[in-house]
Design a protein around this nucleic acid. Structure first.
Lengths: 233, 233
DNA sequence: TGATGTGTGTAATATAAATGTCATAAAAAG
DNA sequence: CTTTTTATGACATTTATATTACACACATCA
């Protein structure tokens, strides 16, 4: 599954060149030419990385970076700043905004790709392989094991991925379509309702110690994985 | 509110099949069989998405895509290319023309619909909504949760939307019709009085800590959500 | 190769929740 | 005290979700 990279750059030729290079290298590029468009495209499923032009009109480049780093949900998206100046002050300002790396224009495609890969490598393996614990539930992606209070459970592959996704994305509602995108993959075409069935299977599997209540139905919206149990009705 | 999709495809059987699939899935299909027809049909109100055959006679498919992406008004209409070849060069050319996605013929109806939905989902801004707080009431659109002084409460979908609207539009009277427009959506046919009932339900749900008084009846006008409590009559 | 088991997606059915409308009570306005 | 407007509770209908059953695809192993 290709990584999605959002390219925020106002100059069309540069933006298209970058997009081209990205596509050539197996990335999936999304384009935005200004602050507004960028904001609009930073939605679920979030891009894996953002290439952000420093010199967006009105200095909105840094503004965007700051705003993303301040939001709980977008904070973890790595950002690489594109800048024409090699100015030290600018670098400082950029890193201050929480930017992950810098590329100075003009840059070679090779350099760009290398930096992107470096950042992704630095950021993502932890997220993907680290064992997670949540209210007595443990999930170890490497060993492919799940346990509740040290009693190990037996999940099918899909249920495992679903639980993994939930445990790494708690306290937030996901529509069936979003779950399909994130758990099944973007190019898989199954019915929305299939999600219900897998939710059911997962709930069944984690039933016993009340953990099934962590998977909450949000009527009309989707499902949420949460440690805050509903006030008993 | 069905999405309008323009199908540009010269082969009638394929075009009709696509149209059929679209209609089946709740979309509103418009057909065009060549460059000229397509151009003629891309007028206000613009279609929500265009399915464009790559191999239109005379290579006019890419031409059309480029022309649309160069025009300020049509640039934002997402385009999905239909192509018989899985050729890499073609993909690059297509993406270069700003196309949003690709579907390779032959494709399954399911795949087509899924891609359309994915593109629409990606393009239409679900906006990163921030949590709102108002006098101890918290509403988090992302988690889809409401709480009063950290005691979480559960609301039906309509009550949730209604409260969300109120919390983002405080200190102002809204007529029942305005509320219907904003919370239910325009072109929905329900009685004005239905609003009363939902107001009632919402009040009931937030009762307990005096917050129900925030929803104020303005006789003859409608309702207002306000932190300034009425002086006791 | 065939038998067996597992995992998946889909469709059918059951269950539950939410919605809109009405009838009636209560409250304000004049 | 009469009229107008809003509040409230009940109900039928509609809509959404839960659950079950089943068929098919794959892999494994005899």
């Amino acid at each position: 599954m290709n990584r999605q990279i959002l390219v925020v750059e106002d100059e069309a030729p540069i933006r298209e060149m970058i997009t081209f290079v990205l596509e050539q290298n197996g990335f999936n590029a999304i384009e935005a030419e200004d602050y507004e468009q960028a904001k609009a495209k930073i939605v679920e499923p979030y891009p894996d990385l953002i290439l952000l032009d420093w010199m967006l009109p009105g200095g909105t480049g840094v503004k965007l970076a700051k705003s993303l780093k301040q939001n709980e949900y977008t904070r973890s998206i790595p950002i690489i700043m594109l800048t024409a100046r090699a100015d030290e002050d600018d670098k400082v300002k950029g890193f201050d905004a929480g930017v992950d790396d810098y590329v100075t224009k003009p840059f070679s495609p090779k350099e760009l790709i290398a930096r992107i890969k470096a950042v992704i490598r630095r950021v993502s393996p932890t997220a993907l392989e680290e064992a997670i614990e949540f209210h007595g539930m443990k999930l170890d992606p490497i060993a492919h094991r799940v346990s509740i209070n040290d009693r190990s459970l037996d999940l099918g592959p899909t249920e495992f991925r679903l639980l993994h996704f939930f445990m790494t994305h708690t306290e937030r509602v996901y529509s069936r379509e979003q779950l399909l995108d994130n758990v099944w993959g973007t190019n898989v075409y199954v019915e929305d309702r299939t999600v219900d069935v897998h939710i059911r299977r997962l709930r069944k599997a984690i039933t016993g110690e009340g953990h099934e209540d962590f998977i909450q139905t949000v009527r009309g919206s989707g499902y949420r994985f949460s440690g805050k149990l509903k006030t008993s009705a």
